[in-house]
Design a protein around this nucleic acid. Sequence first.
DNA 1: AAGTAGATTAGAATTGTTTTAAAGTAAAAA
DNA 2: TTTTTACTTTAAAACAATTCTAATCTACTT
Lengths: 132, 132
Amino acid sequence: MDSKTKLRKAGLRPTKQRIAIADILFNGINRHFTAENLHNDIIQSGKQMSLATIYNCLNKFKNVGLISHLQSLGETYVFDTNVEHHHHFFNEKTGELIDFRPGDIHVKKFPKLPKGYKSSGIDIIIKLIEKN
Amino acid sequence: MDSKTKLRKAGLRPTKQRIAIADILFNGINRHFTAENLHNDIIQSGKQMSLATIYNCLNKFKNVGLISHLQSLGETYVFDTNVEHHHHFFNEKTGELIDFRPGDIHVKKFPKLPKGYKSSGIDIIIKLIEKN
DNA sequence: AAGTAGATTAGAATTGTTTTAAAGTAAAAA
DNA sequence: TTTTTACTTTAAAACAATTCTAATCTACTT
């Protein structure tokens, strides 16, 4: 499916800029990227586009589910008086974090790590919403 | 142990400001906070301190291991063309992210969730460093 | 008590993202 | 088709979080 159709199907107007972005993003290879990354790619391909447009488009794409964005633990630097290794519950509504001990969770099957690398740690975030 | 001693033991000069911060942080209750949070607490307790000092102190505290900071997935907003639910390898050196499928990992024992809440998802980040 | 290295501060600088308001463009209506 | 309308793009300004700068201050050493 070409970018134009894809955008239309998602309920977005296929503008020149959106098509250019979609052409880069949906070429079949999953990728992670920042607005800045993408802007560079576009500039280097000889096109011109403002960074604000990139942000606008990406946010629209995200809203309609064409892309996702990595839910870190929020936007700001969060400090923690707990220096032991531990994981977190994350209250999706309030943003509140609650610790839990590594012993309270047990990971059985492990994914195969990329060649030449070893694991230096694992961070687990269990997201919470109110029951009912 | 009082804050002054604690700071000295950690190799930090116990200044008025650091003591004030330590008094708030190390009162026995683990807590998560941002620089802004802490600044508000301090201002509300009638003390005066610049936000820059808060940042300086927290970074110092972090360097000596008195506190930790939550490793989000980096500082900037990262988008992802993969809209399926998935987890990530995180290359600690380069910041690169690689997806892995939820089926590639299996969590057996689950921590007890806070009362009144249910899980709305789980995010797992496996950090990687080069072997040898 | 005096000197020095390290700490604090206000304010400027930086970085990443969003907003604003004006000008442009795709889709719908005529 | 043309006109109209609603949505987009843009540069520039605004904003938010964090760090830096350079002057002042303070805890520790002597």
